[in-house]
Computed example of a mutant assay.
Amino acid sequence: MLPPRGEGAVGDRAIQQALETAWPADLPAGDERWLLAAGRALLRADATGTGRGKWPEVFPGSGRGLAPAFSTARFRIQAAIARRDGRPDRTVVHLVWAGTDRGGTHTEGRITDLHFTRTTPTRKKGGPAWIPQPRT
Rank of each mutant, 00 (worst) to 15 (best):
F75W: 10
P132E: 04
D89S: 09
D101W: 02
W23K: 13
G30F: 02
T105E: 12
L36E: 06
P24D: 05
A80F: 05
R44G: 04
V92I: 13
V58I: 11
R52T: 06
L43M: 06
Q133N: 10
T50Q: 13
F70S: 06
K54I: 04
T50L: 11
V93P: 15
W97Q: 06
V58K: 15
Q133K: 10
L114G: 04
T72Q: 14
T50V: 12
P132Y: 00
G127P: 13
R90W: 03
Q16N: 09
L42M: 10
T48K: 01
A18F: 07
T122S: 12
A82L: 03
Q78K: 12
A80N: 09
F75T: 08
W34G: 04
P60L: 11
I15N: 01
R13H: 04
K125D: 12
L114I: 15
R52E: 09
Q17W: 03
G65L: 13
R110A: 02
R76L: 07
L114C: 07
V92C: 06
G11N: 13
P4C: 07
R90L: 12
A9P: 15
A98H: 00
E108V: 02
E57N: 13
H94D: 12
A14D: 13
L42E: 08
R90F: 05
V58Y: 02
G49N: 01
P128N: 14
K54N: 13
A79W: 01
L42D: 08
K125N: 12
P3I: 08
R118Q: 14
T112R: 15
D85V: 05
R33K: 13
P3H: 06
G104W: 00
R44Y: 00
L36Y: 01
R135G: 04
G127D: 13
T100S: 00
Q16I: 09
A98M: 06
A25T: 10
S71P: 00
L35F: 03
